[in-house]
Amino acid sequence: MTDIVRRSGGSPGGGGGGSDLAEVVGMILDKGVVIDAHLAVSLVGIRLLTVDARVVVASVDTYLRFAEATNRLDLSASRDKGLPDLVSGGKAGLMEKAGDALGEIVGGGGGRDRDRVPRRRRREEED
């Protein structure tokens, strides 16, 4: 019985990290059609486990993390890197990276067994 709880905070340096389950799951929590109140008499209260969908709210904690990250920044090594470089080279490495990212398909990927998903009955004959 594991509740889904996002780690609060997170250091500015800790970015990047893979597709945490929590991020993927957090994406769907407040989505979807809400069944209207006038049918509420038949809405049944299932107990939902606590799920903390994280929203970034600036706070003193945030400020201190940013200050720390800024203070440890070694400017000498990054002087010419502040802004996006629109004519970057090194294509190969990046394409690889982008390719990896695009490959991280969540749900509904191409590899899914067609039999396992609900599908149209009549359309396939019509097409």
Binding site: I28, L29, G32, I35, V44, G110, R112, R114, V117
Partner: peptide, 19 residues
């Protein structure tokens, strides 16, 4: 899976909705 592999439009209902 319904939307992508099944190629069927789907309106998700908010998770945890039980009638």
């Amino acid at each position: 899976g319904v939307a992508v592999t099944g190629d069927v439009p789907v309106l998700p209902v908010r998770f945890g909705t039980v009638l």
